[in-house]
Design a binder for these strands. Structure first.
Lengths: 348, 348
DNA sequence: CTGAAAGCGCTTACAG
DNA sequence: CTGAAAGCGCTTACAG
């Protein structure tokens, strides 16, 4: 075990250690490492052998070569089933660009637990090439700090409206809302309800706006009692679905603002013996993994999370080399994935 | 504006130049660049401004003082639904230890695409504190390389039997197989089949061995035709389930070696009008997210993936500071999670 | 909060 | 060919 000090084990031996091992001076070892000609064959052999034996790794030079660069991905929760797709997209794009991804849920955690500064300090210390935030936004002071330290960052599917000038990538939420609603209209539905997430979330607002537009275009009256806001999880949605079912004139179809909430909708329907899609059509949004596992499999509006993450990474890289990209908000198109949760309304 | 100092262009200004420009010493400029606290706001502003104006580019560090340490997590696929839990556990444990996680699928990819050495070199270059492999194992030469460079590593739920001396963390697969089978036996089943994954996978072998033991203990004869190996995915399992259904005396219950395969089993059963759990009981293994989304929700043997990842990380950390841990193979206990896919056999 | 001093791992120029 | 010496860009420890 040859070790210089308390330095990281994996950092490997220094040239000095190798030189000592080979019985030569540091400059001579340096020449061998750099492939210089002016070294005696026997000396070269001894040094090479020591290099190999100790597993010497060149440290980056001051001028040209850089160590692999790291990009930070901050997610609001690693338990969110959307995180997988985001990570997948970011990791692939990073790999192609010769970068690596550091994943953390640190931002969210630090809000309550520890000074956020810690994390940001470390990030700059190791020279992060930039930060991607997925459904997690920096706080006001963090925005300032990031600007000051010129750390490029971009938001993926931000929950709230980002401050002016902040780069973000999202899905075409409004268009997706239109698509979902038009699909139901085309099947013959007119009593179409929406279960939306929290009023404050940006994506949800746009999805609901799309729903309203589609309704208006089709000349179908929007009924206020058909729009329900819920906590963005199964339990929240279950409650709202029950309320919709209790209406004097219940809907024949629901557009649920995120697949995340659909399990609760299915539960509420099962409680009342309402079958999907025979008695009630359900359309989701996002195309999270659960959309395929639910029974019946969920017809949903696919948001290309992996592509969004990859796009955000590319934007980040461009910011590193130059000015902010022209387009501050990028929207990738959404599309309907038809599965088995929608049909014509009963009696149609 | 930050430039990235691409190798070809003339090296950017040095910190010394920036410091002069800002009218401060080099150490002070260094502090600003590194986000240190102990700089007067006005000084910080002047330095930041000079940094911007001159387009300073951070040079890589080369001395003994270390930036925050990084641990690598290599997964076989970011699209595997188990990856989320593994990442979650690793990230939390890392965070608590003041480390950060670099995620990659690089190993798997590199097998075909590019020289593995690239990736490993980079890893050492940036001073990885060690590597966690989830269901992805280093190749022979990689093992050698890792040993030589003294990069600590540990395997999480390895697919194959690791070489002697390699540290790994898994679930109690044999015990889990016993648990699953005993559960079915207790419900009154005697005709219990197993759909296993590939013969070569270690965890699967242990699970099947547990199944046999439980059968033997209960004095139930093992029927060879009830053991089927399948490709570890839905399609593979669907085919085997059909075969089991075609048997002269089909089973009344199936133990499926991984939740990953259960969707195919459900499909095969639905095709034949066989209801779960009334006509056929199904037990899975792993407790992946889909176990909750399937209908009926899957009774399965939970493998504590997050805890396994956290344990592997702790072992890794111990290896960094000293010799290899005593215990080369660590097994965390598994437990049955009862949901709705099991019941007494028909006619019981 | 600031910066002189010492130090890091490495390379270059050059005397032997 | 070899290696002592000087130097590079940077960071840390610490005295003020």
């Amino acid at each position: 075990m040859v070790r210089t000090g308390s330095a990281s084990v994996a950092a490997g031996p220094t040239l000095a250690v190798v030189a000592r091992e080979a019985g030569v001076s540091v400059p001579t070892a340096s020449k061998v490492v750099n492939g210089r000609e002016d070294v005696a064959p026997e000396t070269r052999r001894r040094v090479t052998e020591a290099l190999d034996r100790l597993g010497y790794v060149r440290r980056p030079r001051f001028d040209g070569a850089r160590p692999p660069r790291l990009v930070d991905l901050v997610v609001h929760s690693l338990e969110d089933s959307a995180s997988g797709a985001v990570l997948h997209g970011a990791e692939e794009a990073a790999h192609d660009a010769g970068l690596e991804i550091v994943v953390s849920a640190a931002l969210t955690r630090s809000r309550s637990e520890r000074p956020e500064r810690d994390w940001l300090d470390r990030l700059v210390l190791r020279g992060s090439a930039g930060i991607l935030f997925h459904r997690a936004e920096p706080s006001g002071p963090q925005y300032t700090w990031l600007e000051q330290h010129r750390v490029p960052f971009a938001l993926i599917d931000p929950v709230r409206q980002p401050p002016p000038g902040v780069v973000s990538v999202g899905g075409a939420n409004w268009q997706g809302g239109v698509t979902a609603t038009e699909h139901l209209l085309a099947l013959g539905h007119e009593r179409i309800a929406v279960i939306a997430g929290r009023r404050s979330t940006m994506s949800c607002g746009a999805r609901v706006a799309g729903y309203r537009s589609a309704l208006a275009s089709a000349g179908v009256r929007h009924r206020p009692e058909y729009l329900r806001h819920a906590d963005p999880n199964g339990a929240g949605a279950r409650r709202r679905m029950r309320e919709l079912l209790d209406l004097p004139e219940p809907p024949t179809a629901v557009f649920v603002c995120s697949d995340r909430m659909v399990s609760g909708v299915y539960e509420a329907l099962a409680e009342r013996g309402s079958r999907v899609p025979d008695d009630m059509s359900v359309v989701g949004f996002d195309d999270l993994p659960e959309a395929r596992w639910l029974t019946p499999a969920l017809t949903t509006v696919r948001q290309p999370l992996s592509e969004m993450a990859a796009t955000a990474l590319h934007l980040l890289l461009r910011m590193t080399d130059g000015p902010r990209p022209e387009s501050i908000r990028t929207e990738l198109s959404t599309r309907l994935v038809e599965r088995s949760s929608t049909a014509a309304p009963p009696g149609a």
